[in-house]
Design a protein around this nucleic acid. Structure first.
Lengths: 138, 138
DNA sequence: TCCACTAGTTCGAGTCTCGAAGCATCTTCC
DNA sequence: GGAAGATGCTTCGAGACTCGAACTAGTGGA
């Protein structure tokens, strides 16, 4: 059986992610966020151009109706705003509100504080990111 | 900002897992499995003692009612059977049926064939598993 | 102008998730 | 032994998530 190292790696990746989500869950609940809305909020970086719905859907591996639903959740809570893209009026970009930036900052901080990966050294993290980036690139 | 390597690593882990699930999805659909039922099936190794509901719930980071639901899905499709544990008659262990072993084998094979991690060498996989295991251990 | 295409939304159905309450079975302690 | 509490699982009900199909609005090419 040649796949045992590969199996172990897949399981480890799954466990690391699930464990991170599990540990962060109390912080999300305090902000009335769920796993799904948290992932959407996480995927909107305040340092980059605000993404369109389409871009965000690809980033989250979900489809358009699903993202409409999640966007409604975030908009209802005053965390994001839909803004019509002037260069293509069909498209709406998602802009973080002031509250959205604040809440996002707190949950991101919580993720970094709680994830099991936090116990690794800078060198180990760099190595890990490098390996995964290489896998994802191909 | 000290957390940027850590952020990159968390994002890479998330992406790797989501991407794996996304690529395997057509195979799951062919077996009428969803992501949730697939994870449950994946978590029942045919080479180990059949796990109790409680054990499996911990492994899947879900609660008891949720696992009851997923177990029903798998049992309805004839993939697992609930067996009363003679040593504690409150507990039910989940045993793969012949069909369950077969289907599990196929989806596991599909995961290993499709996951982006499959492009890494044995040495890289070993390194990756080692890093994640070290993170999860603490 | 017409027409095919694209971005997003709405709708409806199915799936997933979980707290609360209930049942059966242990375990503890008297 | 028997009551009292703990544990493993299920049921129920409500809410959240996901997606295909159909729809609206806007774009771009002939």
């Amino acid at each position: 059986m040649t796949g045992s190292d590969l199996t172990a790696a897949v399981v480890a990746v799954y466990d690391t992610w699930m464990r991170t989500v599990d540990l962060v869950e109390p912080v999300l609940a305090a902000h009335r966020l769920t796993t799904a809305t948290f992932q959407a909020l996480w995927a909107i970086s305040p340092d980059e151009d605000p993404p369109s719905m389409k871009t965000l859907a690809e980033r989250l591996y979900c489809n358009a109706p699903n993202l409409t639903f999640m966007t409604n959740q975030l908009a209802d809570r005053g965390l994001v705003e839909r803004v019509v893209d002037p260069s293509d009026r069909r498209s709406r970009v998602l802009v973080l509100t002031a509250k959205g930036r604040e809440v996002r900052g707190e949950v991101v901080e919580a993720v970094l504080a709680k994830t099991p990966l936090g116990t690794l050294s800078e060198a180990e993290l760099h190595q890990l990111s490098g390996l995964l980036a290489r896998a994802l690139r191909r």
